[in-house]
Write a protein that binds this DNA or RNA. Sequence first.
DNA 1: GATCATTATGTTATACTATAACAATCACTT
DNA 2: AAGTGATTGTTATAGTATAACATAATGATC
Lengths: 166, 166
Amino acid sequence: MNQEDPGFESDHNHQHCIAQALETAHTLCRTRHQRLTPVRELVLKLVWQNHQPLGAYELLPALADAGFNSAPPTVYRALEFLQEQGFVHRIASLNAYVGCPHPERPHRSGFLICRNCKRAVELNTHDVHSALKDSAATLGFEIEQEMVEVVGLCPDCRTSGADHAQ
Amino acid sequence: MNQEDPGFESDHNHQHCIAQALETAHTLCRTRHQRLTPVRELVLKLVWQNHQPLGAYELLPALADAGFNSAPPTVYRALEFLQEQGFVHRIASLNAYVGCPHPERPHRSGFLICRNCKRAVELNTHDVHSALKDSAATLGFEIEQEMVEVVGLCPDCRTSGADHAQ
DNA sequence: GATCATTATGTTATACTATAACAATCACTT
DNA sequence: AAGTGATTGTTATAGTATAACATAATGATC
C-alpha cells in the first residue's frame, strides 16, 4: 500500500504522512472492531506531527488545549492502545513514541535515530532478524520480541556539518 | 582471555565470573589511569551478583549496608563510570544494568533477555551488526551506537514448562 | 610536607517517566 | 430503558534519573 517509505528525506510531504496514518488507523480500527476515539486519534495525530519521537509528557499540553483531561493516564492509555494496534512504537532508549508507517501487519521494529536532528526512521529488519534468529537458535533461546535502536547521524546532519563529536 | 562465555547454562561457577570481572576491571583501570574506587568496585560487584540485570535503586540498600551514602546520585555516578569503562551495560528496555564479560575492548552490545527467569546474556552481534550496517548504508546513515535487546525464553525456562503465555 | 587543582563523594532537592485505584461517563446490546 | 463493558476523569503515588552545591579525598607541583 504505502510504497514510498520516507527515509531521512527532509522534504517529503509530511501532511501526506499524517493523513495517511490517520486514514489507515481508522480503516484498521473498523475492521478490527476497535474504537479510534477522539483522544486516541488526537494522540496519534500528535505523534505523527513530525518524525521525531515524542515523550508522553510532551503530548499533554496539546491534549489540554483540545479540551481533554491532561493527566498522564490519559495519554498513556491512548499510547498503550495505539501500540497494541501497531499504530505507534515506543523507543525504549528515548522513552519516546513515534508513528508507525506500517501498522497493517505486526512486525519487528528497528530504528535509526539521528542524535542531532532527533528524527527516527524505521528500518527493514529482515536481515537483522535473520542474524538474531541464528544467534538465538545457537543458544537455544526462543525469541518473542526484538528491540533494535541505532543511534548515529542521518545523511542530512552528516552533510550539514553537524557531525562534530557528540 | 575469557574463552568460556557463560550462555544460559545455569550451573556455571559464578564466583569465577565475579572474581574475573573484578580483576579485569582493576587491571584495565590501572592501565587506563582510572580509579576503581571502593564504591565503584562495590557497585560492579553487586551488578555481577547474578546474570539478572539490576535496577539502580536495587543497589542502594547494599550500598547503605556497606556504609556508603545511599542516595541515588552515588549509584548513578558509579554506574556511569562503569559504563564508560565498558564494565557494565545498561539495558534500556528494563532500566537495568548488567555486567559486561568483555570490557577489554569496546563493542556493540546485544542481549537475549529471558522474560521468565530475567537472566540476560550478551550475544555476539557480529552478523547483526553487518545487517544493520548494510541497512544504514543504504539510507546514508552513520552508525555510532547500537542497542539490540531481545526478549523471549531461555533454554532452561523453555524446557521447564515456563513457556506459557507472557 | 604544604599548596593547589582535579576528581570523587555527600547531600538535598527536584525533574522526568509511568502506573494504581477508584469514580464517572459513554456506547452498545438487549 | 436498563444493564454491561469499555473508556475517560481524577487523585495519588511509584519508579527512574539528574541538577546543584558542599565537602572530602587524591595526585601533582613546589
